[in-house]
Design a protein around this nucleic acid. Structure first.
Length: 303
DNA sequence: CTCCAGGCTTACG
DNA sequence: CGTAAGCATGGA
């Protein structure tokens, strides 16, 4: 067990905001990262960690090297995002392992977070390695490449099953070099990732942001579309439905700048807070003290 | 019953 | 080109 001194870091927000799928909270947070178990808990500015993985790894994983003063000042363009920075201060992006991140987000397409988590857990239990009693590593590309469709049925991935098995085979036999993407610029990385069956712009953007350090990536899913229309709707009024997500992403990159990926996570978490009641540890609501900025109240989904 | 969930692929004009 | 159905599964 060891302690890490932090500032502008909030473990609960970081692990609850929906970017990762394998962490669970009891008294401590427990997760499996890079094949090892991590238990973590925050006490004030101190992060308590119990793991084989060392301080440097944890520091890097939670992006404690990010200069939050600079990031906040760059993305803080108005009082909407400003109030979210205040509310969720300390929420950090996480540096995820690319393979697990990619597979996880291929699972996410037209799926619910609860089901994504269950499927990933089952894949690990079925095809990963048992690290300690009850905890399993995420299966390697080589392990998944050997699995057939009927063996995957218990993971309840539905139509995503063949996509994931194909992907595993392509990565395992080096038809697809996942680890090259980190060295590519954002746009090239995205065009590489979208060659994969089951990976469009949104999922590519998630992987580029969460695993490949592309903080200029701004993934637009149903939640982001909803909240961006609500607070920035005048910037893409009249855009056709089929173009709206790309339009939102382009606007956000320009508006929030090179760290817009961070803005995305705060906006996403805020919208998640409106629709999910489970596992949210943040204060109950959202901009209640900033009524001036609420627009389009008619579009708010009923509670 | 219908509708939706961190979308994407395919078929059809 | 652009649009829309179809896709497994589970929960509201």
């Amino acid at each position: 067990m060891y302690r890490i001194n932090t500032s502008d870091f909030n473990l609960n927000h970081t692990l609850s905001c929906g970017q990762v799928f394998r962490w669970e909270k009891n008294d401590w947070w427990t997760g499996v990262v890079n094949g090892e178990v991590i238990r973590a808990k925050q006490e004030g500015n101190e992060l308590l960690v119990d793991s084989i993985l060392d301080k440097n790894f944890i520091w890097h994983y939670f992006r404690l090297d990010d200069d939050m003063d600079r990031i906040y000042s760059e993305i803080n363009r108005d009082e909407v995002i400003g109030s979210l920075i205040e509310k969720y201060r300390g929420l950090r992006l996480i540096r995820q392992e690319p393979w697990e991140c990619l597979v996880s987000y291929v699972c996410s397409s037209n799926n619910a977070i609860r089901n994504i988590k269950k499927s990933i857990k089952r894949m690990s239990e079925c095809f990963g390695r048992e690290i300690e009693r009850g905890y399993y590593s995420f299966p390697t590309p080589e392990a998944l490449a050997e699995v057939n469709i009927s063996e995957m049925e218990q993971c309840r991935l539905g139509f995503r099953t063949p996509r994931i098995l194909n992907l595993a085979r392509m990565v395992a036999n080096r038809e697809f070099d996942l680890y090259r993407i980190k060295d590519l610029p954002y746009r090239e990385g995205r065009s590489e990732l979208t060659r994969i069956e089951g990976v469009g712009n949104k999922i590519a953007d998630c992987v580029l942001l969460f695993a490949f350090e592309k903080l200029e990536s701004f993934p637009v899913d149903t939640h982001i579309e909803h909240i961006m229309k609500r607070y920035y709707g005048e910037h893409f009024k009249g855009v056709k439905k089929s173009k709206i997500r790309e339009s939102i992403a382009e606007f956000a990159r320009e508006y929030f700048g090179g760290y817009c990926g961070y803005a995305q996570e705060y906006l996403y978490y805020a919208d998640l807070g409106q629709h999910e009641t489970i596992n949210l540890l943040s204060k109950p609501l959202f901009l209640e003290s900033h009524g001036d900025f609420r627009r389009d109240r008619g579009s708010v989904r009923k509670a």
